[in-house]
Design a protein around this nucleic acid. Structure first.
Length: 338
DNA sequence: CTCGATCCCTGGACGC
DNA sequence: TGCGTCCAGGGATCGA
């Protein structure tokens, strides 16, 4: 399940594999998870993938503008002609402008920015394939590249999202999200957490507070920081938010180093699984012993998500003791009895 | 503002 | 073996 470290892993892989390649054509199959499939079909062909970045749980495939694409083609044909000894003044290199491969700020932001946003959801996979490789079931988008390979988006559950956005629309979309947990400072983090009555687990998962944290890394960082998931953000002391942020950064960085967690079927752009799931301390360990104190790891629903925690290390907030939340299953059992 | 509930979707696990 | 049911998850949305 791709969260920040998994998306970072995929984005790095794609940056290495497909950055600089031009999209020749686009084929879409099921499009119900795309914002505007027609825009994707019409706007992508002819553009070059300049760079692949992670933004929260999104991948951003930065694309050239049509103007830049023209310059690029002109430069290429110019290079060919120079080789042939033919050269015209019309094709003098334009030093003053940001061309492709020139200034890094060329089209990454501002009015001319263009990008394909890809959210992998639960089961999404975006990776280059050789054209002769069989097309997997649930392949919903195929981007043919100028070297003959195909960038394919495969997503059985279609919980992902794909959108082609540009200019102010792109800026507005990115603006909806909170700080990157790897970059946010302790003051800003404390401010965002402590000013809220929502539970800390909900805050960690709220993409408008922090972008990129999902269920696994929320649980793991809360365990490491010894904070109960149901504690209100506003109840946390400054010392606790500091501890939590340090835990979060530490865990996310380690997970990135290990190329993410492969829980169900996550693989990166090269088809490799991650290794971090072997280092999970609480996630998926309900009923097993806490690595720190030996108590049994417990499971409960917090903020609508399954949450794993140590009842001893992560003390329940006041007023919660003895009143366990009923799970869906417990409720169903009750109803069926009555 | 914050909550839970509900929907989306499919494959895998599990029970009978 | 085969069928039904439940469940996972992120995010949007809605009503309380």
């Amino acid at each position: 399940m791709p969260e920040l470290p998994e998306v970072e892993t995929v984005a790095r892989g794609l940056q290495a594999r497909v950055a600089g390649r031009r999209i020749v054509s686009v084929t879409l199959r099921q499009t119900d998870f795309m914002d505007d499939p027609v825009a994707i079909e019409q706007e992508l062909p002819g553009r070059t993938i300049e760079r692949v970045e992670r933004f929260g749980k999104f991948m951003l495939l930065r694309l050239t503008t049509i103007e830049q694409q023209r310059e690029k083609i002109t430069t290429e044909s110019q290079r060919h002609r120079e080789k042939d000894g033919k050269r015209t003044e019309l094709e003098e290199p334009d030093q003053g402008r940001d061309g492709v491969g020139g200034g890094s700020k060329s089209n990454t932001s501002g009015e001319n920015a263009r990008a394909l946003l890809v959210h992998l959801g639960m089961t999404g996979n975006l990776a280059p394939h050789f054209a002769e490789q069989p097309v997997a079931k649930h392949t919903h988008a195929t981007f043919v590249l100028d070297d003959g390979r195909e960038l394919r988006y495969i997503d059985p559950r279609r919980f992902g999202r794909m959108a082609y956005l540009s200019g102010e629309t792109l800026a507005a979309e990115l603006h909806r999200f909170g700080a990157d947990p790897l970059l946010v400072g302790a003051d800003e983090f404390a401010e965002r957490i402590r000013g809220s009555k929502a539970r800390i687990k909900a805050l960690l998962l709220d993409q408008s507070v922090l972008r990129g944290v999902g269920n696994i890394y929320a649980d793991e960082s809360l365990w490491k920081a010894k904070i109960h998931p149901a504690k209100q953000g506003g109840q946390l002391k400054r010392e606790e938010t500091d501890r939590l942020l340090a835990a979060l950064k530490n865990i996310l960085q380690k997970a990135i180093e290990m190329r993410g967690s492969s829980i169900s079927d996550f693989v990166d752009a090269d088809g490799f699984a991650g290794d971090y799931q072997q280092h999970h301390k609480v996630y998926g360990r309900d009923g097993k012993k806490c690595f720190r104190c030996g108590a049994k790891i417990r499971w409960m629903v917090v903020a609508g998500r399954s949450s794993h925690f140590c009842p001893v290390c992560q003390r329940a907030p006041r007023g919660m003791a003895g009143r366990r939340k009923k799970t869906k299953r417990a409720r169903r059992v009750e109803t069926s009895k009555g």
